[in-house]
């Protein structure tokens, strides 16, 4: 439903977005990741028709944002960064305004606003100036405005930024609940959020897409993907070195890193060569040696590691060119 085609944006000599392309289908929640200044917001502003692209375009539900901006704006719900809203207005009057622009009138408008109030929990603040609301409430007002017309496409720029853990949880639940019949794009730099709500992640840095895949696929690119974390009970700390050597001798093992651990056991992370599964080798070894194991677990890989590698690695410095 969202088809981004070689979107580029230059601000004078600065290339903020440089040929970004990806598509989002119904039912997908796409996490749009990247360091600050990577071009996430700029890309979203172009897709929603706020900024004009320098080159390329985005097609939303079959409408080209450059050719038919209004048709696109009718179909998108957009939560801009920081959830701007008119500070002197109350959530009530603000939502009435957005609703009337979206074509809601009279009873339909009232009913829809009542629905939204319970969906995003605005009970009790509807008649207070938005100015006086907490960050969490302001964000919810923005979210209510974005989903007021139940859009097919929802684009949110850092929807949970600045919220407390409970509020984050609530917003994520809401996103998950809406996900099946919408195409959703959300930008974030909270990686746990990607694991929690996204079905796909696109990482951009310096205006270019450097990774595109499911969170699991991205995790697989992590150095610690398929690494085995093992804690072996040892009689004395001196014996830990022997355990380490045994592990290092196993097939497909790249490195064994000691980890801090509580008394009585020696803990290591065993990293495989090229992400191979090494659990069979490790368990065979455990059985053969008769070790008493306190902990044994396969790491899925860490997104933050991938994120750091990708956004600061040689690719990030234009090596791909």
């Amino acid at each position: 439903m969202i088809d981004i085609r070689a979107l580029s944006k230059r601000f004078g000599p600065l290339v903020a977005v440089d040929g970004v392309s990806f598509t989002v289908r119904r039912g997908e929640v796409l996490g749009f990741l990247g360091p600050n200044g990577a071009g996430k917001s700029t890309t979203m502003k172009m897709v929603t028709g706020f900024l004009a692209p320098s080159a390329g375009t985005a097609v939303v539900c079959g409408h080209d944002v450059v050719q038919e901006p209004l048709a696109v704006k009718e179909r998108i719900g957009y939560l801009p960064e920081g959830a701007p809203a008119y500070p002197d207005m109350t959530p009530e009057s603000f939502l009435r305004f957005v609703g009337s622009v979206r074509g809601f009138r009279g009873a339909a408008l009232r009913n829809r606003i009542d629905e939204l109030v319970s969906v995003v929990h605005l009970e009790g603040v509807m008649r207070q100036p938005i100015d006086t609301l907490s960050k969490g409430y302001k964000r919810r007002v923005g979210l209510a405005a974005a989903i007021l017309h139940d859009p097919d496409v929802l684009i949110m720029d850092e929807p949970t930024d600045g919220l407390d853990p409970n509020q984050k949880h609530e917003v994520r639940q809401l996103i998950r609940a809406m996900a099946p019949d919408k195409a959703i794009v959300l930008s974030t730099h909270i990686l746990e959020e990607v694991e929690a709500v996204c079905t796909r992640a696109v990482i951009i840095t310096r205006g270019r897409v450097v990774a595109d895949g499911t969170p699991a696929e991205l995790q697989a690119r992590s150095r610690s993907h398929n690494a085995v974390r093992i804690a072996v009970r040892v009689a004395s700390p001196a014996l830990a070195g022997g355990v380490r050597d045994e592990l290092a001798r196993l097939r497909y093992v790249e490195a064994v890193e000691p980890c801090p651990s509580d008394n009585g056991s020696a803990t290591f992370v065993v990293r495989p060569k090229a992400g191979r599964a090494i659990l069979p080798e490790v368990t065979t070894c455990v059985r053969a040696k008769g070790w008493e194991v306190d902990e044994l677990r396969v790491e899925e890989g860490r997104l933050d590691e991938v994120f750091r590698d990708i956004t600061t690695g040689p690719m990030a410095n234009g090596g791909a060119r």
Binding site: F50, L70, G82, P87
Partner: peptide
């Protein structure tokens, strides 16, 4: 206030 982004992304 940044509300221009809101106004200009509404179908007006």
């Amino acid at each position: 206030q940044g509300t221009i982004e809101l106004l200009m992304t509404l179908p007006v």
